[in-house]
Design a protein around this nucleic acid. Sequence first.
DNA 1: GATGACGATATTGTTGACAATTTTATCAAT
DNA 2: ATTGATAAAATTGTCAACAATATCGTCATC
Lengths: 221, 221
Amino acid sequence: MPDQETPRAPTGQEIADWVRQRIRTGRFVPGQRLVEVDIIRQTGASRSKVREALKRLEGEGLVEIEEFRGASVRSSTLDEVRQIYRARMALEGMAAHDFTQNADPALLARLQALQDQLDACVRERAPDRFGRLNNEWHRLIVEGSGNKVIADHLQRLNVPIHRLLFESFYDEERLQTANADHQAMLALILAGDADGAERAMRQHIGDGFETLARIEDEFYR
Amino acid sequence: MPDQETPRAPTGQEIADWVRQRIRTGRFVPGQRLVEVDIIRQTGASRSKVREALKRLEGEGLVEIEEFRGASVRSSTLDEVRQIYRARMALEGMAAHDFTQNADPALLARLQALQDQLDACVRERAPDRFGRLNNEWHRLIVEGSGNKVIADHLQRLNVPIHRLLFESFYDEERLQTANADHQAMLALILAGDADGAERAMRQHIGDGFETLARIEDEFYR
DNA sequence: GATGACGATATTGTTGACAATTTTATCAAT
DNA sequence: ATTGATAAAATTGTCAACAATATCGTCATC
């Protein structure tokens, strides 16, 4: 008898992941209502699991739940995005510091390889691919820092701004300065200058917010 | 007709608070199993609410839920505590920086008043009271920084180490150096030296972990 | 006394029915 | 056409019963 296909019902965590993904990729937009039955239909999960997942996401600040009105995707003000970036500066700066102190050669090689690919993206003007690789670059540093607590908190911070993280790279100038930042940071890391790497990471993220704020301002004008 | 006593059933959030409190104050110790019926008996909540609360706490990393075995208080290794302190250094340092830049006179006055009380505790050798006021001191800076995101994440970080935050102050020497740190930091804040305040805060928290690690080491010897 | 099988009890997981509330549709009055 | 009232439908909140699993105590066996 061949392996039976077992489409077991998704767990609460998996449904939460599913919703998170849809929020990240913009298929669920801020303000949109998340009706339990719809999610049940689309995921095949039971109602309790869906409710559990929504509660979970509420705890992460990703959705809002009003009594008898259900869940909806929470939207962030520009000021809240600013606060998120401030937290990112602090945590990811620390991660860069610790990564520089702890990183083993294998990780350094992977980072170097990623950097080469990023350079290629700049030459070929491929902002989309750059965005994806940029995410990997940052994640590699965070995961490589050996601090799971910081990694967890950063992951949570990033979800609501995930889409914004790609926007800026359609600006040719930002693409180049961001890549230059990465190159400089890599040099500092390889040189073992932990404090320098931390400062550079904070500056880099701070600049990232500045361009973002500029774009948003134009958008809302 | 006088106001009727209305003991409405507690919400999931309130039960979660209740459990958090008990974990903080050590009435629920790491490893202890949290049986649903017990919590129902003690809080008067319905089972769904209790389950919701436990899931919530699992999301915060405070309890562990195993299938068909239920929830138990998660215990942190010393390395995880180290990671938490590392995250605190980053976030609370940033908070101190922003507090210095933004704080209005009213907050500065409150901070000064707290400092006076802390000084008194040192003179009178009152480590318990010092611990409580110390918490307030730190919280005042975080709340006063104007960054709700950072405040939220710090609150979460602090729950599992809440009891540890008091332990160190029974060491006379730590009590004095901690207070000296506070005094120096207050001076930097009043002088408007944001970078200095940030560095001082990070150093202060880092030192806090060092004494803690020393105590734990002795304990486990 | 130690070990393992077995049943009784305790505990958690899931489902479905029903209550409370909001949202939508309908239609009369102006 | 707009408003407002009313009923119907949709949606969420709650609870209790039942299923699945784990835990504990008992007893026979070695």
